[in-house]
Design a protein around this nucleic acid. Structure first.
Length: 219
DNA sequence: GCGACAG
DNA sequence: ATCTTGTCGC
């Protein structure tokens, strides 16, 4: 698939934050409610410099693999919480560009709106590609929330500065929740619904599990 | 001011 | 992210 050209790459924290503040204005919080091709994205670090980006496209109805791609790369920015996307974005974009199919939805490993400046990795990837995107975090990051009930499907809002920016969502009975937030062109209800539907068996959505596995064991 | 801080 | 054992439960 085709991805818009990357903006000039930041060298400093201030430049990176300025890019987030500018691109944030392009985020759309509503979009399609159903999808046919869902992509999971993840990165595995070989060492402090080198990494492997993986994208796996699944049939949304059957969860079977339609296409998968890995791309070697390097971390393009130091790790700074809140600027995490700048490490992995170039490699993830390169992987997306190698896809012969265009997914309907990007399921990203990390946050979207639930971010200090409201522009996490899922928003960034969504805006660059123009595709609906959502973020799934494994640990709480920003905002306040209470623990959801222990049953699969239970959820509580994540609130930041008085606004709801995501949901703590239980995808398995008695297992730690995941943290869902909107990336681009999707509403929160749909994002949470998709994460639950894509996680029929394990805590993490199948697209992310597949991408994680592929990134660790490149083809 | 200090510590904590998505992956 | 990663370094890491055994243990419990499906």
């Amino acid at each position: 698939m085709r991805v818009n050209q990357l903006h000039p790459w930041p060298t400093t924290v201030a430049e990176a934050e300025a890019i987030q503040d500018r691109l944030r204005l392009h985020v759309e919080l509503t979009g399609p409610r159903a999808f046919t091709l869902v992509a999971g994205l993840d990165v595995h670090y070989v060492d402090d410099e080198r990494l492997t980006a993986a994208v796996v496209v699944l049939d949304a109805a059957t969860l079977s693999v339609v296409e998968q791609v890995t791309v070697p790369g390097k971390a393009e920015f130091p790790y700074v919480a809140g600027l995490f996307a700048f490490r992995e974005l170039p490699a993830l974009v390169a992987a997306l560009e190698r896809l012969t199919v265009t997914p309907d939805l990007l399921v990203c490993d990390g946050y979207g709106l639930a971010h200090p400046r409201g522009f996490g990795l899922a928003c960034h990837l969504g805006v660059l590609t123009g595709l609906p995107a959502l973020g799934v975090g494994k640990t709480p990051f920003v905002g306040a929330h209470t623990a959801p009930a222990p049953e699969r499907g239970a959820w509580t809002p994540i609130v930041l500065a008085g606004a709801t920016v995501g949901r703590a969502l239980r995808t398995r009975d008695g297992v730690k929740p995941v943290y869902v937030s909107q990336g681009h062109r999707i509403d929160l209800e749909t994002a949470a619904e998709q994460v639950l539907r894509l996680s029929p068996r394990f805590r993490l959505p199948e697209p992310i599990r597949r991408a994680d596995h592929l990134a660790r064991h490149p083809a």
